[in-house]
């Protein structure tokens, strides 16, 4: 009697058959998977719509751009004041220009440059 062997050809045939087997997802499973997908997309949308809490102030950006404290310490005060005026707005400039043109008042640096002390202290 010939010994039965399950040879590799027959085994390949079984593998071929297994590959044709369709595992049909139930409609309930599909609904659950898509619901999870929607939930996760909503979570991502919510997370990306929050404003950045780590936004740098304009002052900090400029401070870094000009080289930080080593650069500041090398500049004359007038240069630093000029930078500050460029950042800080113009309501003060209008007062300065008016007073200079009319000669009516003497302006002090501290009055002309509100916040300047804080600017040079920042860092």
């Amino acid at each position: 009697m010939t010994e039965e062997k399950f040879d590799s050809g027959a085994l390949e045939g079984l593998f071929d058959l297994a590959r044709t087997e369709k595992h049909v997802s139930s409609s309930d499973l599909i609904v659950r998977v898509l619901a999870d997908a929607d939930t996760e997309q909503a979570v991502c949308r919510a997370a990306s719509s929050k404003p950045s809490e780590a936004r740098e102030s304009r002052l900090a950006v400029v401070f870094r751009a000009i080289g930080g404290w080593p650069a500041i310490s090398g500049m004359a005060t007038a240069t630093v004041a000029g930078i500050w005026i460029g950042l800080s707005p113009p309501a003060t400039l209008e007062d300065i220009s008016t007073s200079l043109l009319t000669g009516e008042t003497d302006a002090y640096l501290s009055e002309l440059l509100p916040g300047f002390d804080d600017f040079v202290a920042e860092g």
Binding site: K22, S25, L29, V33, L34, A37, Q41, C44, R45
Partner: peptide
């Protein structure tokens, strides 16, 4: 990941049967 809901359906249709199998 960029918010396309049709992409979720396409991925589910393509991958879920394989994963389930």
């Amino acid at each position: 990941g960029n918010g396309d809901t049709d992409a979720a359906r396409a991925l589910t249709q393509r991958l879920l049967p394989r994963v389930l199998g």
